[in-house]
């Protein structure tokens, strides 16, 4: 068990440290790279918890796809931190005030937190024993059987988001030459070239 504990502290320490670096690093590209490191260690923590499917999906989706696009954008945009800081200081007082109020509210809520006496009984999703069902199968049952309605609705939301993004940004430009592979392939020799018998010295 010492190995697990050591691994936990290793992952947790690196994750916290890299999370701090994400917000304190001056170079935005470094921030993204630290963010990736943080994701990676979060995946490690999931593995320690036995949630191997979640761990792998975290790496595939967040590290492998989302963070790549993020890095892509950050590298291409020349983000000027100093300019961002300028506006930041201007709105700091009011932002801090709102944050403080929310913090105090949260503190009050947490201080007087009561959980409904029947809360335990109401949790009606039984957790299957981990030695009988792999967590991939367990997640699948929850997602595709129990919450299929929400799964499909969420799919609709993503579809709308995609349609919206395309509607608002895609511009058909005039005069762009496009490759039509079907047309290229269906071209015959006699449409494309013409053989002329030229007598030497007379020109075409």
């Amino acid at each position: 068990m010492i190995v697990q504990a050591l691994a936990f502290y290793l992952f947790a320490a690196i994750m916290v440290a890299s999370a701090v670096m994400v917000i304190s690093s001056r170079n935005p590209v470094h921030s993204v790279l630290f963010l990736i490191l943080a994701f990676f260690n979060a995946a490690g923590l999931f593995v320690l918890l036995g949630a191997e499917f979640l761990a792998m999906i975290l790496v595939v989706v967040y590290v492998g796809a989302v963070a790549v696009l993020f890095l892509f954008v950050v590298m291409m945009l020349d983000v000027n931190i100093a300019e961002l800081r300028h506006g930041f200081l201007q709105y700091l007082p009011i932002g801090a005030l709102i944050g403080l109020i929310l913090l105090v509210e949260l503190g009050m809520v947490a201080g007087a937190w009561v959980i409904s006496p029947g809360a335990g009984a109401a949790a009606h999703l039984p957790i299957p024993p981990p030695d009988q069902v792999t967590n991939t199968a367990a997640l699948g049952h929850v997602l595709y059987d129990h919450y299929v309605y929400l799964f499909q609705s969420a799919g609709l939301i993503l579809l709308v988001a995609m349609v919206g993004a395309i509607v608002l940004t895609l511009r058909q430009r005039e005069g762009v030459r496009r490759q039509s592979i079907a047309r290229q392939i269906s071209r015959r020799r006699d449409e494309a070239i013409e053989v002329k018998d030229v007598t030497s010295g007379s020109g075409v």
């Binding site: 947490a110 937190w113 029947g118 809360a119 109401a122 949790a123």
Partner: peptide, 27 residues
């Protein structure tokens, strides 16, 4: 607070608390 997201279960939980006279939680 209630440990459930279903409206039916939430209503049942609040009704139970109200019947038991539990004061409503600040959270």
């Amino acid at each position: 607070f209630a440990g459930t997201t279903g409206f039916t279960d939430l209503a049942a939980a609040f009704a139970r608390d109200a019947a038991a006279g539990t004061p409503v939680s600040l959270g």
